[in-house]
């Protein structure tokens, strides 16, 4: 490698280190300022809590086994709703692609459902499916399914017209067009819809847990609000931030792996 290239690489590495150090510094300064302001009573610790109180609460929850239980519940619901959402979204998108008239008929209904604030349906879902995990999954599906269908379907109809024409000249059947062209070419769209889907699923699950649950991070937050334990609420939020970050990173990893494949 030339000296010039080495210099540029070195500069890039240095910039990366500066960015990472700055990010850590922001978090540390924020936590320190929060802790100091709360201990000096400049911020009311009853309302704003403090990092040390949150840490203690999290530690106690961990020791009692409650933390793992709540994280486990939310994760289970997220994985279930995500898997159903993405599989059903894929199958329905294929159906819409194969039946264009049907797609045109239901297009306005999909748009209507998509633009509806799903939380409004919460009470009805609880009555229909009961105050249990089922209603949480349904709530998450209401949010992630339509987005999945629309993303995957748009990927399908956006395929290269020339390649489509080529397959037609080769006499490909509809299922062959799907297998040889539509699915491989929409791989990127499908992968990026995984990212959107996981975020939507998490929103749906937490919303569901707010409405009806006996455990889960959403329950932890709503319970903390009801008993006015703001430290518990903030602990729940912190867990949620870490959990959603980890899930997102996991999906990004899958995306990277799949994108590297041709």
């Amino acid at each position: 490698m030339s000296e010039e290239a080495l210099k540029i690489l070195k500069k890039k590495k240095k910039q990366k280190r500066i960015i990472f150090a700055s990010q850590i510094a922001i978090v540390v300064i924020f936590l320190l300022a929060w802790e100091v302001l709360a201990s000096k009573k400049i911020l009311n610790p009853f309302i704003f809590s403090s990092p040390s109180r949150i840490w203690n609460t999290l530690w106690n929850l961990f020791q009692s086994g409650e933390l793992i239980k709540h994280i486990g519940t939310t994760l289970y619901e997220v994985i279930l709703a995500f898997s159903i959402g993405i599989s059903a979204g894929f199958v329905i998108a294929i159906l819409l692609y194969e039946l264009p008239t049907f797609a045109k008929i239901i297009d306005p209904f999909l748009t209507m459902i998509n633009s509806l604030p799903k939380v409004a349906l919460g009470p009805i879902i609880i009555i229909w499916t009961g105050a249990n995990t089922k209603s949480i999954i349904v709530m998450a599906l209401l949010i992630n399914l339509i987005v999945s269908i629309m993303n995957i379907y748009n990927g399908f109809i956006g395929v290269d017209e020339v390649k489509l024409k080529l397959l037609r000249t080769l006499g490909a059947s509809k299922s062959q067009v799907l297998r040889f062209l539509i699915i491989p070419e929409s791989k990127r769209t499908i992968i990026s819809s995984l990212k959107i889907n996981i975020s939507m699923t998490l929103i749906g699950v937490i919303m569901g847990e707010f409405l009806v649950s006996k455990s889960g991070i959403g329950y932890l937050i709503i319970y903390g609000t009801q008993v006015f334990n703001l430290t518990l609420v903030m602990s729940g939020i912190i867990i949620l931030i870490v959990l959603s970050f980890l899930i997102y990173e996991f999906i990004s990893l899958i995306e990277k792996k799949l994108s590297n494949q041709r």
């Binding site: 020339v162 080529l166 000249t169 006499g171 062209l181 070419e185 791989k187 041709r262």
Partner: peptide, 26 residues
């Protein structure tokens, strides 16, 4: 046999797989 304006090769298939695409479809 129909050859289009662009090569319309499938980027996720190897050259050999592209060359035998028509045979596979038919």
């Amino acid at each position: 046999g129909y050859m289009l304006q662009s090569d319309a090769l499938f980027p996720w298939l190897t050259i050999y797989e592209n060359a035998i695409l028509g045979l596979k479809i038919k």
